[in-house]
Amino acid sequence: MSGAARATSPDMTSTGPTDDPKRATGAPGGGDGAASGYAPRHTLPLRVEIVRQLRRRRTAVMFGLLLALPWILVVAFELGPAGRQGGLRLSDLATQSGLNFAAFCLSVSANFLLVVAVALFCGDTVASEASWSSLRYLLAAPVPRDRLLRQKLIVALGFSAAAVVCLPVMALLAGTLAFGWNDVIVPGTGETIPALDVLPRFGIVIGYALVSQLVVAALAFLLSVSTDSPLGAVGGAVGLVIVSTILQAVDTLGSVREFLPTYWNTAWLDALALDMDFTGMIKGTSVSVTYAAILIAFAFRRFRRKDVVS
């Protein structure tokens, strides 16, 4: 170091302050006293945050898992003993067509795997910065707190959305290659719907899956802001989702269950019925948006007032 530093030191004295006399005299760059070129609205651009997150190993592992799962299931269906013919459950119909297979993949992963993925991307984002201590340098840069949260939230939601979308799309691809582009057989009733008719509905399914994961995202984000432990934030969000799932199985709670955050998670199945029914999905969207709005508002409020000591 000493050698390098010695080599640099003349530069330090010659270039630095004399370069810019105005700044050297401490004259404020603008009314807010910022350094020249600094503007709060330009701090932490999305591209920077995306690069920061994208190069992480857990991102690659999670996406790898989500993209590999459909193929693992294809292999499992191909190797396994011939399934019960004539059953009308989603799992019985999985090998009927690529779309049936994609619906099956989504149904088996929506309750846990996707929850973990979303909780990971949204729960880890602030907490891991805190645990690396890089958070305080970002805040002192300064990236305004609201902006930091906003940018991080956008990127985390973007990664979560990519995770939720990539699984069914890969499942559709894998299922179509393995089981063919056939008409969809509706679970439960056995009716068939032409594949091309279902394709736009599949878009609705994915869109609803995204919306229903908003609760998990918002909850994980709030925990992420509240703790310095990334594991705590992710685990806490997944844990609360599990508790909610258990509670919704208690029939005696009656209509109270409708307000549990996970209650409507499977409502997207209605979009694959012969007659689409949006009631469940609308209610689910309503509940999801409600929780998400309040949890995210709390996250911002909490972060604004927080003393960053990590």
Partner: peptide, 14 residues
Amino acid sequence: FGHRVTPGAPVLSR
């Protein structure tokens, strides 16, 4: 530099 420090105050850029 005369500017009051608050969280994220622009003057922190200096």
